[in-house]
Design a protein around this nucleic acid. Structure first.
Lengths: 129, 129
DNA sequence: TGATGTAACGATAATCGTTATCATGCTCAA
DNA sequence: TTGAGCATGATAACGATTATCGTTACATCA
């Protein structure tokens, strides 16, 4: 069982207090800005520890991994390729169909990640201008 | 319009002649083994060029990008976290539900990627032993 | 109380996939 | 033939992440 150190608690608090998807660097900067500087390696280790305990969730994007609060039901993500905005959505039926598809192939699912790319509503409109 | 140079043709041939999902390094090694050595930068540029022409497809996994033939209908992937085996599957209904979910959020979809993780049939059995 | 063991910390080096740089080479149209 | 323009390949650079290693915090036990 991991130790919930002050640093890890702080990371967890930051993530839980927001609706954002954070990367390691942003978290280190946020803590630094709050006067509590932290080593970047500690951030990575803390995130891994928190995630392994199920205290936070993550999505792996092409470039980097981002973390969010685990205080929500499972959901997937739409990422705006223009502004980086991340929209969440969940779809019961999609989940079920995934499970069925896995079973059909003999796979025991441990996880999945569905990421959709496109333009968000705002960037759509900006585009149209 | 890009130039389909001998190097790019060779990359395309290797990919099309197989059912595998290749990364840049494997392709460079395959060509080297075949007596036609190639610079790694050329591989990356070639892959990007071929993909932008729709001649090959790719999936972005956590660690690296992998390329496969575009000679097939769209499909998604199941990746075995034990042995790396990649299984393909396609599901019309999932696709449609994704589109609908995007529309609902005001997103204009340009692409998506669904990757499921788990144990393949073989690793499942090995596990049980 | 003090020794000891364990795990976390933080600075920094290392790793690894990928991209940028730059000098050189090929090809095709003028 | 020339030269513009793109491709090549060696290699440096980059960025996210992980490994290393000496140090530190803390709990346990004699």
């Amino acid at each position: 069982m991991m130790k919930l150190t002050p640093q890890r608690q702080a990371i967890l608090d930051i993530i839980n207090a927001s609706h954002r998807h954070w990367d390691a660097d942003e978290l280190a900067r946020a803590m630094s800005d709050a006067g509590q500087s932290i080593g970047i390696a500690t951030v990575y280790r803390g995130l891994a520890a928190l995630e392994s305990q199920g205290l936070i969730d993550s999505i792996q994007l092409a470039d980097k991994k981002r973390y969010e609060s685990a205080d929500k039901a499972h959901h997937d993500h739409m990422v705006c390729t223009e502004c980086g905005h991340i929209e969440e959505f969940s779809h019961q039926t999609i989940e079920q169909l995934q499970l069925a598809a896995a079973e059909e192939k003999g796979f025991t699912l441990t996880g999945h990640q569905l990421v959709m790319f496109g333009l968000c509503r705002q960037c759509n409109q900006a585009q149209g201008t």
